[in-house]
């Protein structure tokens, strides 16, 4: 199974030139098989750089990355094979689409896996359904679609690989609220049904709080916080100092506290907020 282990990771862009930039530094962590992880952090904190190391698209300047116990940078063969295990949806979908038609674009991965034509067709349709890509779009060029449609196709192209580890870099940016919820729900059910590890980079704290089992917060290229949503969101001051937000439920609870209404327990989802308010109300009535 595919446990991810990262040791002493450091990445420097344009090393040895005047434009040298340390993007991540001193990152060590383990993500067990089947975890749903949310990655948060301010703009430029190194999230995208970090996740591109997990499928060997970027090679570490220092440090090692293991997937399923195998050092993925051991040789060019391990670097290629890890792509079947770890599927990555890029932050900017327009950079991910390159085929002439939507159908061919989604089929690109399965075709590289040398699957049979029927199998490819089946996977394409399934992946399209997952990402809500209309089959009517199949013969269009992916480049002439809207931003949201492009993002769905990019997601479908990776889902078609059926990766054991699914990584999505801001998968819902640019989607309408309904599409957003739907995609996140589909990701959650993929996670449940296949037992895959899922890593989601997001700037949306509400979504992250709702679905993630674990949250990793990056700050200036280092891991600043790492724990359950409960632990991470119990320190809102720290998050705000890092230029991040807290979930709306948490900030509402903080506002209530300031107004003299103390709520019990840690609150980071709407459900928890509702329960806590109800409990507080009962306590008052008595």
């Amino acid at each position: 199974m595919a446990e991810i282990k990262v040791e002493g990771l450091r990445h420097v862009y344009s090393a040895g030139t005047p434009f040298e930039k340390v993007a991540i530094e001193d990152v060590s962590l383990t993500i067990p098989q089947g975890q749903l992880v949310g990655v948060i952090g301010h703009t430029g904190s190194g999230k995208s750089t970090f996740i591109q190391h997990l499928n060997a698209l970027l090679q570490p300047t220092e440090g090692k990355v293991f997937v399923g116990g195998q050092d993925i940078n051991a040789s060019k063969y391990t670097r290629r094979d890890v792509k079947w295990q770890v599927g990555l949806v890029f932050q900017y979908p327009e950079y991910q689409l390159f085929e002439e038609t939507v159908y061919r674009d989604i089929a690109f991965g399965p075709r590289n896996m040398k699957l049979s034509d029927e199998e490819i067709d089946q996977r394409v349709r399934e992946a399209a359904k997952f990402a809500q890509v209309d089959e009517e779009l199949f013969e269009r060029s992916p480049l002439e679609l809207s931003g949201g449609q492009k993002r769905r196709i990019a997601i479908a192209g990776v889902i078609a690989l059926r990766p054991g580890v699914l990584i999505l870099d801001e998968p819902t940016a640019g989607l309408d609220p309904a599409g957003c919820r739907q995609i996140l729900d589909n990701i959650c059910s993929y996670h449940r049904e296949s037992g895959s590890t899922v890593i989601i980079v997001s700037h949306n704290m509400d979504d992250t709080a709702r679905i993630a089992e674990r949250i990793i917060a990056f700050d200036h290229g280092r891991v600043a916080m790492d724990g359950t949503p409960e632990q991470v969101f119990s320190e809102p001051e720290k998050l705000i100092a890092m230029g991040l937000d807290v979930p709306r439920a948490t900030s509402l609870a903080m506002a209530l506290k300031k107004a003299g209404i103390e709520l019990e327990g840690s609150i980071y989802t709407h459900g928890q907020l509702l329960n806590a308010v109800l409990r507080a109300k009962e306590a008052r009535v008595c």
Partner: peptide, 14 residues
């Protein structure tokens, strides 16, 4: 473009 294709298993190295 090469990164995007590599991420989905295109093979430029082996």
């Amino acid at each position: 473009i090469m990164s995007a294709q590599k991420a989905r298993g295109a093979d430029f190295e082996t």
